[in-house]
Design a protein around this nucleic acid. Structure first.
Length: 597
RNA sequence: GGGGACGUAGUUCAGUUGGUUAGAACGCUGCCCUGUCACGGCAGAGGCCGCGGGUUCGAGUCCCGUCGUCCCCGCCA
C-alpha cells in the first residue's frame, strides 16, 4: 500500500478522489454509530469518517483505535457539508470516508499526548523526547531549523564558500573553556579533545588556499549550562581570505537576511555599529539590548555636596536606567527589586526615585529631562558608593581603576535587563517581534584574570590587535583594542569573530604578552606557528550560533526548544541516560583508572 | 562552587492552623449516543504525596538531609 497524500495536504479540489493516508491517531471522537478519527503526520491532520451504516465491520475496527496508533486509511475524499466545515485546520473543507483501515502499529498509553494543550514538565518531555517531538510546536521548530540551515548553505555556496569538514577528534588547547576529552586506546594516557570551535583548522584552510570556507558544525564546551547554553551546540563557522571587517559584516548581514527570511522575518541592513567602550558606557553590556532605552550618565545633575550627601563617589558615573511605562514601583516591588541588583565592586542602587526627588528636586528634574523620562516611566539610579580609604591600593594601577568603574556600568546593565524582563508585560517592548541587530566592535585584546594574576585573551589569542595599538602590547595591554567584533540581536550574542593574525612575529608577540614563553607556545601551537611561516594570506571570519538564531526565530525561551535531543542543566541526556559509567574492561583497554572519592 | 523556585493519580494542578476516607480537570476502562472536531452523557479504575531521617498522640503540611528538573551568579578564549 502506498501513501498518496500527507495528512495536511487534502483540499476541496481533491473531492471525489481516492486517498491513502498514513499517520498517527491524533484524536478519536466516537459518537456511537459514527466515529471520527483525526489522522496526524508532520504536515497536519485530516478527519477520517467511519459510519456503521456504510460498513459495520470497518466501523467496529475503528472502535479499537487508540491514541497514537499508527494507521493507514484508504478512502474517498469528500467535500464537507457547509455546516460541518472546520475552519481551524487547513484540511477542514474535506474529510476522508474510510473504505479500508490497517493498524500498522499499536501504541501503549503514552505518558502524555502530543495533541494535548497543557505541556508536561520538561523532565518528562526529555525522557520521552520522541513523543514530545511529535508536538506541532516541536515539528515547527525543527523544520524551521532545517530551512534556516538550508538557506545559509545556499547563500554561502553562492558567495563562493566551500563547506569543508574538520576533525572532531583533535588536540586539547588549554586556552578558553574546558575541553571534552576522548581517550586514545592506541596511545594510553593520551587524549583527543572535542573542538570548542574549529578555529585553527579554519585558519589553516585559509593558509591552504581555500579562500572562503564555511561549516555548519557542532562545537563542544564543558562549562555549566544556561537556558541559552548547551555543552554541544552548532555554529555557522566561516572564514575568508584578504578580509576587511567590512567584508565580514556584509557577508554576515546578507547571511542573516536570507536566514531570517527563511524564518519569515524581514530585516534591514546594514546594522548599526558601536564600539565595545560605547556599549559598556551606554548599556553596561557588551551585548546591548537596543529595544530598551539607553542609560544616561547624569552625574552632572548633582552638585559635589549633593553627591557627598548621597554617599556617591565623586569620580563614579551616576547611571539613570529608564524603563518605559512601568510606572512607579510599590514598596513591595522595590524590595523585590534589590535581589536583582548585583552590587559588585562598590556599585550602589537608588531604587526610589520619588524619594530622591523630594530631597533633591533640582537634580531630579535635570535627570528627567536628560533621560527623556515620562511620568509613567520607571527611573532608577546606579552609581559607585564612596567609602573611606577606597581604591588607594597598588598606586592606582590603571586596569584596577577601570574595572572599578566597569563594575558600576555592568551592574547597571544587568539591572536594566532584569527590570525590563520582570516588567515586560507593562512596557511591551519585547513583544511585536522587533529585531534590533548591532555590531559591537573594537573589543579589548586582553582581559585581566584576577585569579591567575595575568592577562588573558579576551576573544582568542589569534585575534589581530589594532595596528595603532601594537606598541602598547607590552606597556599597556589593557588599552590594546582588537579587530574583533560581535553580532548582537536583542541582547543576545549571535556570533563573534575577528581578523586574525597572519604574521608569525606578531603571533609570537601576543603569546609573549599573554605570559607564554616561546617554548610553551611551541609546545601548544607549534604546528600552527609553523604553518604561519609558509605564506599565510591575511584572513578573518566569524562564527554564528545557529541554535540561538533559530531560538529567536521560533520565539523560544530556551535552546532546548530548537535542539531535538538536548541535555539538562547537569549535562545529562534523559532519554538515553548519558553519561554512564563504563565497564572495567573498557577502562583497562584505555589505560584509565577512576579514582573513587 | 554559590543563590533561588519546584517535586501530590498516567498528565496538569488544588490541598486551609498539623487532625476523619488526599480532591478537580484532562487522559485511561466500560456502557449510551449519526455530524463531531478540546464531541457529549452515565459509571468506574487509578496515589510510596520524589526518597531517607526527625519533631509530634497524629505529617502531603513543620525541621534536617538527599535526589531530580528549571532559573540566575561564578564559569563560558
Amino acid at each position: 500500500m502506498r501513501r498518496t497524500h500527507t495528512c495536511g495536504s487534502l483540499r476541496a479540489s481533491d473531492a471525489g478522489n481516492k486517498a491513502v493516508l498514513m499517520g498517527w491517531v491524533n484524536r478519536r471522537r466516537d459518537l456511537g454509530n459514527l466515529i471520527f478519527v483525526d489522522v496526524r503526520d508532520r504536515t497536519g491532520v485530516t478527519q477520517v469518517v467511519f459510519g456503521k451504516e456504510m460498513n459495520p465491520a470497518l466501523h467496529g475496527r475503528a472502535g479499537e483505535l487508540r491514541n497514537e496508533y499508527v494507521i493507514a486509511v484508504v478512502g474517498s475524499v469528500k467535500q464537507r457539508d457547509p455546516n460541518t466545515v472546520n475552519r481551524n485546520i487547513p484540511s477542514g473543507d474535506v474529510e476522508v470516508i474510510a473504505e479500508e483501515l490497517r493498524i500498522l502499529n499499536e501504541a501503549k498509553q503514552p505518558p502524555f499526548l502530543p495533541g494535548e494543550t497543557v505541556l508536561p514538565n520538561e523532565e518528562l518531555r526529555l525522557k520521552y523526547r520522541y513523543i514530545d517531538l511529535r508536538r506541532d510546536a516541536m515539528q515547527f521548530n525543527i523544520e524551521l531549523r532545517h530551512k534556516v540551515a538550508l538557506a545559509i548553505r545556499d547563500y554561502l555556496s553562492a558567495q563562493g564558500f566551500f563547506e569543508i569538514e574538520t576533525p572532531f577528534m583533535t588536540r586539547s588547547t588549554p586556552e578558553g573553556a574546558r575541553d571534552y576529552l576522548v581517550p586514545s586506546r592506541v596511545q594510553p594516557g593520551s587524549f583527543y579533545a572535542l573542538p570548542q570551535s574549529p578555529q585553527l583548522f579554519k585558519q589553516i584552510l585559509m593558509i591552504a588556499g581555500f579562500d572562503r570556507y564555511f561549516q555548519i558544525v557542532r562545537c563542544f564546551r564543558d562549562e555549566d549550562l544556561r537556558a541559552d547554553r548547551q555543552p554541544e551546540f552548532t555554529q555557522i563557522d566561516l572564514e575568508i581570505s584578504y578580509p576587511q571587517p567590512e567584508r565580514v559584516y556584509e557577508i554576515v548581514e546578507g547571511l542573516l537576511t536570507i536566514a531570517f527570511q527563511a524564518g519569515g522575518f524581514r530585516i534591514n541592513t546594514p546594522f548599526p555599529r558601536m564600539t565595545y567602550d560605547e556599549a559598556i558606557r551606554l548599556y553596561g553590556s557588551d551585548k546591548p539590548d537596543m529595544r530598551l532605552p539607553v542609560m544616561v550618565d547624569v552625574r552632572g545633575a548633582f552638585a559635589h555636596e549633593q553627591l557627598a550627601a548621597l554617599g556617591i563617589s565623586p569620580a563614579s558615573p551616576v547611571l539613570a536606567i529608564r524603563i518605559p511605562n512601568v510606572g512607579e514601583l510599590s514598596r513591595k516591588e522595590r524590595d523585590e527589586l534589590k535581589p536583582l541588583f548585583n552590587g559588585r565592586g562598590n556599585a550602589k542602587l537608588f531604587e526610589d526615585f520619588k524619594r530622591l526627588e523630594k530631597s533633591f528636586p533640582v537634580p531630579a528634574a535635570t535627570i528627567r529631562e536628560q533621560t527623556g523620562a515620562q511620568a509613567s516611566d520607571l527611573l532608577v539610579l546606579v552609581t559607585g558608593e564612596s567609602k573611606v580609604g577606597e581604591h588607594k591600593s597598588e598606586g592606582g594601577v590603571k586596569p584596577e581603576v577601570k574595572q572599578h568603574d566597569q563594575a558600576v556600568y555592568t551592574a547597571a546593565g544587568l539591572l536594566r535587563v532584569s527590570l525590563a524582563q520582570r516588567y515586560a508585560d507593562r512596557h511591551g517592548l519585547f513583544q511585536g517581534g522587533e529585531l534590533r541587530f548591532l555590531w559591537v566592535t573594537d573589543f579589548p585584546m586582553f582581559e585581566y584574570d584576577e585569579e591567575g594574576r595575568r592577562w588573558a585573551a579576551a576573544h582568542h589569542p589569534f585575534t589581530s590587535p589594532h595596528e595603532r595599538d601594537m606598541d602598547k602590547l607590552e606597556s599597556d595591554p589593557g588599552a590594546v583594542r582588537a579587530l574583533a567584533y560581535d553580532i548582537v540581536l536583542n541582547g543576545t550574542e549571535l556570533g563573534s569573530g575577528s581578523i586574525r593574525i597572519h604574521r608569525q612575529d606578531i603571533q609570537q608577540k601576543i603569546f609573549h604578552a599573554l605570559g607564554m614563553s616561546q617554548e610553551e607556545a611551541r609546545a601548544r601551537f607549534g604546528f600552527f606557528l609553523e604553518a604561519l611561516e609558509y605564506g599565510t594570506p591575511p584572513h578573518g571570519g566569524i562564527a554564528l550560533g545557529l541554535d540561538r538564531m533559530v531560538m529567536i526565530l521560533a520565539s523560544a525561551e530556551s535552546l532546548r526548544e530548537v535542539i531535538p535531543f538536548p541535555k539538562t542543566a547537569r549535562a545529562v541526556d534523559l532519554m538515553v541516560d548519558a553519561p554512564t559509567p563504563v565497564s572495567e574492561s573498557q577502562l583497562k583497554e584505555l589505560g584509565i583508572s577512576v579514582r573513587k572519592s
